[in-house]
Design a protein around this nucleic acid. Structure first.
Lengths: 359, 359
DNA sequence: TATGGATGCTTAAACGTTTAATCAGAGCAT
DNA sequence: ATGCTCTGATTAAACGTTTAAGCATCCATA
């Protein structure tokens, strides 16, 4: 169906101009030997007739579909919109379409979803693997977006360094006892972030780690995290490893009458959509999704498209860079949810623009 | 590329069995006249060789690609994961792939994105239009997910009735002065919800509507909404038309020391991912995305695939149902963020399970 | 004026299906 | 035996593109 149903094809242009279809193809693609004047005439005729090439036919002939697959662990993940948008943008700038496949958190479905994409003839795929999953060889170029600690053709944010930056921020503010909040210890990403946080906070800071998944396994989903008690126990900062957890912490603390940021600080990760609009706006660390997507797509395309300029031995080097690991920096975004701890006679001079500071 | 690069094709099976490729095709599709024994042999051989049909070739021949397009106003929308997941699921159950296209909120891009999908030969598309946009004829079957007040082949949640349910809930609790909070008056969906809310609250309840977009145009993005003042002015309930706005309201009120739900109630729409885990958990209204997606995909497929059983005149009726408007009910989810207003000597007997009620 | 190489175009095959048209043979009635 | 229908297969064309190979023509060089 589609527009091609009635739309003109190359033969129509060829017939209208009294030339062969092959010439039209060459003229439009600029590949064979066609006189400049004819090229111009072909272009004009194509535009006049409203010619739209059949990507299907091209795919059949060339063996390349111009479509990339995007495999996600769970579309419902709040980070997904950012990823999908960035990937879709990068891909469509490169002339590729994006086919989505959701594995709904299920590992069997992930394999099945990958299979479906292969059947549809995708030229390559971007996989955001489910926590701790290793991707088997799938028979087409693959770019994995996860964390640098995953081996393979990975491009990802530098989660560790992002955590370290946040850690330094908190430490500089004067916090000496901070609670690290993660969802699941099975996540490489979260572990990297926690590792970075600890490193950034430094040896002088007391840390404890709370895994939400574990407490929910006991207390039930959506249960209180007991953060007020933690605050009473002297924790002055709650550094979550995702904005979703941070939001949960923030509201739980607020509900308990504990002021953020004047009593305790809360920070997150990922700069999710609500982060700037809650009160107080969340201090967080943002992934540069645009760059990540660009790198992933570029790597994929290098693997898919034949290298045009085998100028030097540089080709090989480029190939290696492609299949290596790229890690892109994260950006600390300081907003209102972090500030100096109450007892801070310490010097925390410049950074935070906290809305209202208690003494 | 893909697996087809090396994979066997129909001719391979045909050659291995000493029959013609056409027969193999007929055997596998069950269309022509092939003896049962041969069908079995072909099946077996296909399995043995690991035959995977080329959907590309099939698409070229039949003119149908088996791919549906999903056009979104803005992938970054927090509701998007739900939509995408439901659509992807429904489509893949029906044997279709889903190509995504993001218009990033831009209306020109929306047209362009639709064009790209057409070029790729999608058999039909699901469009979630940008606020207030009308979709022009695009040359292929289209299902629109928006609101019943949009004319066309629309399937959507019954936003109005959802609003009415929430309104009745609030009214029943005893609220007599409620602030309706919307993002943009240009949104049909939001207007429907607001209309429903007003109707559900009934004539005895005083209402005012706050459009966030308008106050942000003056005060800047992410500015405070002045909700504490509203509470002081006697508003006891804040009914947002999206969970994102509800969350914004909730945190702003909490930050101002106003207890939710004992002092004021807050409610939202859509049951976004964070709604159950914030404190207090948000009372909201959920769309039945699964049903919506199923209806949209089913309508699309009816339009795409030739009707097999023209048994009776029922065919026509089915066709009408398909191109009409389907509205699916929304579900009220009462959690902790709504409760009786402080002065409620009124009878609000059963419904709310509010966490802690002040007197 | 031959020889050789660009140049500009055409021919034809190929990609892997589907499907209409055809055909050989079998069974059966006339 | 001749004609007819039914069955189970084959042949060939078609979908719209790309691309290798071929064929004139023309210009320059020998």
């Amino acid at each position: 169906m589609a527009i091609n149903r009635s739309g003109p094809n190359m033969s129509a242009i060829a017939a209208a101009l009294g030339v062969s279809a092959a010439t039209v193809s060459n003229a439009l693609s600029g590949k064979g030997r066609v006189s400049p004047e004819l090229i111009e005439k072909v272009r004009a005729k194509a535009a006049e007739l409203g010619y739209v090439p059949s990507l299907t036919a091209r795919a059949l002939r060339t063996g390349r579909s111009g479509v990339l697959g995007l495999v996600l662990p769970d579309i419902a993940n709040p980070l997904f919109p950012q990823i999908a948008q960035a990937i879709e943008n990068a891909a469509s700038n490169a002339g590729y379409g994006v086919l989505i496949a959701d594995s709904r958190g299920d590992i069997a479905r992930q394999t099945e979803a990958i299979g479906r994409l292969i059947e549809r003839g995708v030229d390559g795929m971007v996989i955001v693997p489910r926590r701790g999953t290793r991707i088997a060889d799938v028979g087409c170029p693959v770019a994995v977006i996860d964390t640098p600690s995953t081996p393979g053709n990975t491009v990802s944010a530098d989660h560790w360094e992002g955590g370290a930056e946040m850690g330094r921020h908190l430490s500089l503010l004067g916090h000496r006892k901070v609670l690290l909040i993660g969802a699941s210890p099975a996540s490489n990403v979260q572990n990297d972030r926690i590792g970075g946080l600890k490193a950034g906070l430094g040896p002088g800071v007391e840390c404890d780690t709370l895994w939400i998944e574990k407490v929910e396994a006991i207390e039930g989903e959506g249960c209180p995290l007991g953060l007020a008690a933690r605050a009473a126990a002297g924790f002055t900062a709650f550094a979550a490893v995702s904005d979703l957890s941070a939001l949960r912490a923030l509201t739980e603390l607020q509900r308990a009458g504990i002021g953020v940021p004047e009593a305790v600080s809360v920070s997150g990760f990922d700069d999710l959509i609500w982060s700037p609009v809650v009160t107080p706006a969340l201090t967080t660390v943002r992934m540069d999704m645009t760059t990540i997507a660009d790198l992933a797509i570029a790597a994929l395309i290098r693997a898919i498209e034949p290298e045009d300029e085998p100028e030097d031995a540089e080709k090989t080097i480029a190939g290696k860079v492609a299949s290596g690991q790229d890690r892109v920096p994260m950006q600390l975004i300081v907003r209102q949810s972090t500030g100096a701890p109450p007892s801070a006679s310490l010097h925390a001079p410049n950074k935070p623009t906290a809305g209202e500071l208690g003494t």
